[in-house]
Structure formats: C-alpha cells, structure tokens
C-alpha cells in the first residue's frame, strides 16, 4: 500500500534534477523537470479484496495502491511518480476500523487518522497512538490520511511507523494466498522501502494490548506545527523500580527508517538512568543529515528528546 500523510519532497527526493557536474554533454528529457499536473494513469476502484488481488497480479509494479492519497497524490501532481494504474481501495469493505480481539487490537489499514485517535480501543489501550496523531500534518490531511498508507509509505520521518515499532505491532499483509504477518521491526527496510511485495496489500496492523502499568511517551521536534519532525520519539514500557520492563524507544527522522534504540533502552531497563541512556544512544543512531539538521544536530536533539520523553514517562506524565 502506498500513500501516507504528508509530503515526501524534502531533500530526499528534491534533487531529482540535480546531475553531477561532469563537464560533458547531457541529454535531458523534459520529463526530468517537475510539474504539478499529474501524468496520465488509469484508475480502478475494486469493491472486494479479490478484485484488488486481480489487479495487483495483472499489473505488478505498474499498479499503485491509493489509500488516503495524502502523499501519493502529491507525488503524482509533481510527477515524481508515474504509475500506470491506481487501485483505489477506498471502497473495499472491511479495511477500516479498530477492534479489540483478546489481547490484540486490530487496526484496519484504511482507518483514517482522525478516526484512529478517536477510536475507543485506541483511547482505552493505545495512548501512544492517541498522542501521536495530533502531530501528523494538519486536520484536513488527517481527515483523509490512513494508518495503512502512512505505514506502507515508510517515510522515515513519519510518526505512525515509529509508533508501530514502539508498540511491537505486526503488519498483516494480504494476498491471494492469504495473510502473512510481519513484525514492524522487520517490515521497514529503508527509505520508502518495506517488505511488501507488489502482489500484496497491507490490510491491517495488529497491536498487542500493552501490559498493565504500561506508559507511553511521545514527542517530536518540528520546525512548524504539523511539519515532519527533525527528530521524534515514540516510546512505551512498564516502569519497574528504577528501571523498565519491555521498554521500546522508537526514533523517527533519525535514519532511513524508524529505529529502535535498543542500547539506550537496555541501559534504562536496568535502571541506568537517563544520562547513561543518552550516552548509549550514540550506538543506536547514526542519523544522516538533511535540510532540517546535520547528523550532530539530530543526534543531540535525539538525546534531548530521550531525556524529556522518558523523564515524563517516569513521572507518569
């Protein structure tokens, strides 16, 4: 599934036109210049998963899934992407909604951000998501954008992929042959890359109900409200004396994918304290620079966020 929440045109993609200065002649095609009217494509609006799989199997790489469209349509308008076919899954039944089944909360991929934060199971059990959603772009985007789109796009600076990582979520990938389940930690493969195969659809995200006593922490540093964060942290764990149980620290905006800071989490788990965890963070993160900050700035801000978020969690805030 593609799509997502915001724009993907910062320096990760902006330099499409930049060519190294080689002093030689170059032949440029006009298509190398960016525009704002989408290229031509075909469109299908299947009404069942079977129809989705038909289309995906028939068109392979040429087909793109249209979920909330809040990133995909922008990339199409800018001609950064030119799929042959859009498969609009907006009217496939059963893909939206949040429900609890035993110790698992299943979030349909087409659940829109605005509905996600308000869903009773999320309110009751997944405070991390409830806290994260208001940071995603702006209300009009949250009215359309979906969790599945965001997760499948795998923007490393997005909130929800990191939340999935912190919550130990499982991605449910559906295809003609049935479903396979992939842990969030294995799902994200790099910049806009996941383990999704062209014939597969991200159908749902399954999140374990956190154990009793679990607390969530979330914060991000964005230049402007709703912007992608310079760096952000989604965290969840159970306080245990001076330490933590099952503490997960998922940073976003700090690498080519959301990253679990395992070294820092281990220090905290053993009651090592925030300063030691901040020091350990250097082993977890090796952020590339971008327009928002160079590697040193990102590393520094990640340490600051770690202190703030874990500090607040420890105080029960």
């Amino acid at each position: 599934m593609t799509g997502g929440d915001r724009q993907v045109f910062n320096n990760r993609t902006i330099n499409k036109n930049a060519a190294p200065l080689n002093g030689d002649r170059a032949r440029i095609q006009g298509e190398d210049t960016r525009k704002v009217k989408a290229p031509d494509f075909a469109y299908e609006r299947p009404e069942s998963l079977d129809q989705v799989f038909d289309l995906l199997e028939r068109h392979g790489d040429e087909a793109r899934i249209l979920a909330g469209g809040q990133s995909l349509l922008a990339t199409l308008n800018m001609r950064l992407s030119s799929p042959g076919l859009l498969v609009d899954i907006g009217r496939v039944p059963g893909l939206a909604g949040v429900a609890r089944a035993g110790q698992t909360i299943r979030i349909g991929a087409m659940t829109r951000h605005c509905d996600l934060a308000a869903a009773p199971p999320v309110q009751a059990h997944l405070p991390l998501l409830a806290r994260a959603v208001p940071h995603i772009a702006h209300p009009a985007i949250r009215n359309r954008g979906t969790i599945g789109g965001s997760v499948a796009l795998a923007d490393p600076a997005a909130e929800l992929p990191a939340c999935c990582l912190a919550m130990g979520a499982t991605m449910v990938l559906a295809s003609r042959g049935g479903e396979r389940r992939v842990a969030a930690a294995d799902f994200f493969q790099g910049l806009f890359r996941t383990v999704l195969e062209p014939h597969e659809l991200l159908a749902a995200i399954e999140v374990p109900v956190p154990p009793a006593g679990s607390v969530a922490g979330f914060d991000e540093l964005a230049r402007r409200h709703g912007d992608y964060a310079i760096v952000g942290l989604a965290a969840q764990g159970v306080p245990a004396g001076a330490g933590w149980q099952g503490l997960a620290l998922a940073f976003f905006g700090a690498d080519d994918r959301p990253v679990l800071a395992t070294a820092a989490a281990a220090v905290l788990a053993e009651g090592g304290g925030i300063a030691a965890a901040q020091a350990a963070l250097d082993r977890d993160l090796d952020p590339p620079g971008d327009l928002n900050g160079d590697p040193a700035t990102k590393r520094h801000l990640a340490r600051v966020l770690l202190g703030r978020v874990v500090g607040a969690m420890a105080e029960g805030r």
Binding site: Y43, D88, R144
Partner: peptide, 12 residues
C-alpha cells in the same frame, strides 16, 4: 469533513 481538494481525485 474538510479535505485538501488537490489531494483527492475527482473520481474519488
């Protein structure tokens, strides 16, 4: 609901 009209296709 309020939406971005440029991020929605007319067919949608």
């Amino acid at each position: 609901v309020a939406v971005r009209g440029c991020l929605m296709l007319a067919v949608q």
